[in-house]
Every structure is written in structure tokens, then in C-alpha cells.
Amino acid sequence: MLHAREREITDTLVDLLISTVHRINARADKRVTQELVNAFKKVTGKENILFSIAEAALGAPDDSVRSVVFPAVNGGEQTLRELVHEYKTKGPVYRRTVQTTLKASYTNHYRRGLIELLDVLEFRSSNATHRPVLDALELVARHKDGRVTFYPAGEHVPDHKGVLGDWTDLVRRTDEKGRSKVVRSTYEVCTFQALRERLRCKEIWVVGADRWRNPDEDLPRDFESRRLEHYTALRKPLDPTAVPLIDMLKEAVLRTGCLDGVISVAGTAGSGELPREVLAERLLLAVYADGTNTGIRAISGGEHGHSEDDLRYVRRRYLPVEVARAMATQIANATFAVRRHQVWGAGSSCGRVGLDALRRV
């Protein structure tokens, strides 16, 4: 009884950590969005403004800006100010503002609680790929009582995915002597965000937990020694590349276009997203991994060039439950539409039951 209660409490603490990190992100995003929306005023006719400015400047290149450019713009100087403000409240500036607000919120309120959770939870991973995040947590714990802005010189600061991309410039600063320094508070924010993502995928697990336990415990203890027997009982191949079902799934996707909606919403490479063909391949592999119960880890071992992290990210971001339901319904509808009525009739209770089952997935 005490052991079960301990595991339950551990699960609750992990839930608290995950929800707290999410709350920091959500509140920062909401706060910045409100501030920018209140300050934002869309400027119309940008192309006409640019043409008028260019024409006026070329017509009187030696005169002052105030006497030539401002009169050429409807609204004058104020319109140009609004145009500059609109540009500044979009794109990278927005992301940077969210990140700065998130860091401030973490430092002022949430840090103490998250640090205390590190003292009572023990994190592990069965995959060496995620070792940098665990090393980063150890670094955070070692400096939990420190008041310094930067980590000391000579301290090993592990690089992980959470500190890359848009966060890089905020995590690392260069001093007047050209030395790179890591901002402690920002690094902690990025590390907790990375921890949350990997906990949710069970790439990192917690000692003594139940729901957040080692995923290897979900397998029979003799799974490795009796792998062939278990796969045979499940009617699954040991080699995921030898399964013709992937070709059948690909054909179904191409014929029904069930992934088109997901890909179009995700965007294109030009907007900072994955290229359409790469996203389509990863979505197909993720659907196959779940639909056949083969699993992401096994599928990632194929010769397709997509890592386990890539597939898990795409599944998590682009394949929520409602999207999976819509895709299943679309494939089922297409199947019912092309079946031969001479054989199956105009309709059947079996077909309706099957479609209802898909909608309940």
C-alpha cells in the first residue's frame, strides 16, 4: 500500500512539473500577444507608400527627407512611424519578446518550485541521445543556490536541443573580451522546457513513478530473450522494412489526400516550417508506427533518414487525436465510396458500425 502511494505521489509531482513549465509558456505568450495586439495598428497600402517614397526621392534627391518624403506619404511622418512599428511587432521580434517575458516570469516566481521538484525527482533515460538534458539538470541542481548571472568559467555546460534555434542568442552572450558566456536563468528555462517535452514522450522517465515510469517496464521481462516468440504472437515482423503495409498506407494516403489538410496547415519551408515532402514522409511513418503497433523507435531504425526524435516531434505537433479521427474517417469514407455495390449493396450495417468505430478512436 505504501509503495503504491509513493508511486502515486511521484506521478503527481511529475504532473506538477509538466503543468508548471507549460503554464510559464502559456502565460508569457498570452501576455505578449495582448500587449502587441493593443499596440498594433495595421498599415494599409504598403506597396503604394513605397512607390510614392521612391518616386519623391528620385524626383528631388538633394532635398531633405522631411520636405520630400513625408509629403509624398498619405498621413506623412505618422504613417511611416506606424509602418515601422508594425514591422517591429511581427516575426522574430514577437518571439524574442515572448522569450524575454518567459525568462522574467520564471526567475521571479516559478524557479523556486521547479528547483525543489528537482530535489525530490530522479530522472533517467534509456537512450543516450537524451543524456545532455540529464547532464543539464545536474548542472542546474549544482547551481540552484547561486546568485550569479553567468555560469562560472570552466564549468561544463551541456548543449541540448532546448538551447538551440531561437534561444541561442539569449542563452549565450559574448563579453567585451570576446568570451562566450552562458546566462544561467535562460539556460534553466530552456532545460526545463526540454525536460517537459521528453517526459511527455517518455524519452526521459522518473524513478519510483507509475505512469511516468521506465517505458521498458511496459514490456514483458523476457521480451528480449523471447523477441521472436512475442513478435510471432503479435503477428509482427522483426524487420520493419519488410512490411508491405507501408506501401498500402502510402497508396491510401495518395488516393484520399487525407494528409493534405495537415500539411497545408503546417505551412511551407519558406515560413520556417519543414519542407512539404519531408513533413509528408514523417507523418506517413508516424501513422504507420502507431497504426501497426510497431512503434516509433522500431520505425526510426529504417533506411529513410528520419530520426526517432524527428518522428516523435511530428506526431506530437501535427497528429493530435482529432486529426487522426478525421484521417481515419476520410479513408473509411473513400473505401465505402469505391466498393462494388453489386457485391456489398448500397449500404450495410457492418460499414456503418466500422465508421462509427473509427470516429470513436
Score class of each variant (00 low, 15 high):
V68Q: 08
I115D: 01
R312Q: 10
A56G: 03
E6R: 14
Q34A: 06
S105C: 05
M1L: 15
R227M: 02
L117W: 06
V120Q: 09
T191P: 03
L50P: 01
Q330P: 05
V133G: 06
H3L: 15
V140R: 07
R226S: 03
Q193R: 14
F192D: 02
R172N: 15
K41L: 11
W205E: 03
I263C: 00
S180W: 12
S264L: 11
S126Q: 11
I18H: 02
H306D: 14
T268H: 07
D218L: 10
W344T: 00
C350E: 08
M327A: 00
L254F: 07
A209V: 07
T12A: 15
A337Q: 09
E138S: 14
V148K: 12
T129L: 13
P220D: 06
F336M: 03
R282L: 02
T100P: 06
V182H: 12
R172I: 14
Q34T: 14
R340V: 02
G305Q: 03
P244I: 10
E77W: 04
A280D: 14
R359P: 05
L139A: 04
R235Y: 09
R339E: 01
T101F: 09
F70A: 06
S300A: 13
I24K: 01
Y187M: 03
D15G: 02
L13Q: 04
A60F: 00
V338Q: 05
R179A: 15
E35Y: 03
L83Y: 01
D29L: 09
V65A: 08
R5Y: 15
C190Q: 09
D216C: 06
R317S: 00
D356P: 06
F336A: 06
V32F: 05
L2M: 14
S185A: 15
V338A: 12
I9K: 14
S64C: 04
L234Y: 11
G305N: 03
M327Q: 04
A233G: 04
D210Y: 00
R339G: 00
V262M: 06
S185Q: 15
A56R: 02
L284Q: 06
A269I: 13
Y110F: 10
V314W: 02
T186I: 12
G305P: 01
A194F: 06
V361I: 14
Q78C: 10
L219I: 05
R111F: 07
T241H: 03
E6S: 12
F40L: 15
K41R: 14
G165Y: 10
F336Y: 08
H160W: 05
R235D: 09
T107N: 12
V120E: 13
F51C: 12
R196A: 05
R142Q: 11
G165I: 09
H341Y: 06
L83I: 07
A39S: 11
Q330W: 04
I296Y: 15
V69F: 08
E217Y: 07
L102C: 03
A337D: 05
V69E: 01
A337H: 03
A286R: 04
R95I: 13
E176F: 11
R235S: 07
G345D: 08
R23W: 01
Y231T: 11
R198L: 10
D63H: 05
V171Q: 00
T33V: 10
F223C: 08
R23V: 10
E273M: 12
C350S: 10
R173V: 12
A28I: 02
Y313E: 15
P152H: 13
